[in-house]
Nucleic acid binder design. Structure first.
Length: 196
DNA sequence: TGACCGATGAAT
DNA sequence: TTCATCGGTCAT
């Protein structure tokens, strides 16, 4: 894989900045079955004042404690009892935060992704948070992985299209926060989950 | 112990 | 477009 791997210092910054700059990066899963996708959509979950965040009001639980830990680790949680969502822990030390990866553009290991997803459309492989976890083989076993390691990491991309912002998806329960433009997408990319 | 959460895929 | 599916999470 060419390009520069994102290090701890990249993640240990303001969550909104990290979320925006992650768009266009490559998400790499190395191992027996290598898969790579370009990140085309992220959402920021910022600190203890974001009603949509698991870390809202600073409450620490068994599930969300990773968000309070060292930046640069994977945070994977189960949703609906059947799908997974993949996040990266971000933020300065002492500030909980995470960036949810909502959609990828398949780059490598596409045959493996088709096997795991059982669909025929390439666009259907990774255009949603649960879908991309299936395609990349991300599940509970990936929770807590250090993204500064060799198993799962981001690679910076030099050139890509315009990044645009939009309100986050499916957080109607979060009051005013549902309108905050904390979602970042590659403009006009066909692999985003829900076009803005 | 039980209310709650919201992605996906199939059906309409 | 609607609708069924499910179990972990968390405050009780």
């Amino acid at each position: 894989m060419t390009g520069k791997k994102r290090g701890r210092e990249f993640y240990s910054r303001d969550t909104l900045d990290v979320a925006e700059q992650m768009v266009g990066d490559l998400l790499v899963r190395d191992g027996e079955e290598n898969t790579v996708g370009k990140i085309v959509e992220t959402e920021a979950y910022v600190g203890d004042e974001d009603p949509a965040s698991h870390a809202y009001q600073g409450k620490v639980t068994d599930r969300n404690e990773l968000m309070f830990g060292t930046a640069g680790h994977a945070y994977v949680y189960l949703i609906y009892g059947m799908y997974h969502c993949f996040n990266v822990v971000t933020g300065c030390e002492g500030e909980p935060g995470a960036v949810l990866v909502r959609a990828l553009e398949p780059v490598e290991g596409i045959d493996i992704m088709f096997e795991r997803r059982g669909v025929s459309e390439k666009r259907e492989l990774t255009n949603g948070p649960g879908k991309l976890c299936m395609a990349m083989g991300i599940d509970d076993g990936s929770n807590g992985l250090d993204m500064c390691g060799d198993e799962l990491y981001l690679v910076e991309r030099e050139a890509h299209g315009e990044v645009v912002t939009a309100p986050r998806v499916n957080i109607d329960y979060a009051g005013d926060a549902k309108d905050w433009p904390w979602r970042f997408l590659l403009e006009d990319n066909r692999y985003v989950s829900v076009p803005p």
